[in-house]
């Protein structure tokens, strides 16, 4: 097993602590497929989500970050559209999607 010598950490600020916590829980569930090549740790510090990547190469880390960012995009879109709006009746123009 090679050493997880490549490391990188990113910090993603959210609007509030609650959102950062939800984002952490949403993403921490999924296991990393090749755990001998990559490790991801999610930690919440107040309104920030700290993602630590440890991998065998920069390529592995690049792919992992890209994945996390993709997920964060969906999560933030959910926050923008749905946070605090569970009592809102959405109305949309009848456009075809």
């Amino acid at each position: 097993m090679s050493e997880l010598s490549h490391r990188l950490s990113i910090s993603i600020p959210f609007e509030n602590d609650k959102q950062a916590s939800m984002a952490r829980k949403t993403m921490a569930v999924d296991p990393v497929l090749k755990s001998n090549e990559l490790l991801i740790k999610f930690n919440q510090e107040e309104n920030k989500l700290i993602c630590q990547f440890m991998g065998t190469s920069d390529r592995v880390i690049r792919v992992a970050i890209s994945n996390v960012i993709d997920n964060v995009k969906t999560i933030i879109e959910c926050f923008d559209e749905f946070d605090g709006k569970d009592d809102v009746q959405f109305e949309e123009k009848q456009e075809t999607i």
């Binding site: 749905f82 009592d87 009746q89 959405f90 949309e92």
Partner: peptide, 25 residues
Amino acid sequence: TARHHRNWVVRLIKKALSVAGVKGT
């Protein structure tokens, strides 16, 4: 395919809620 789903999932959920006339609660 995953990219397509990510691009549309939130919009589709909103649209479904509006078509159904249903709120989160």
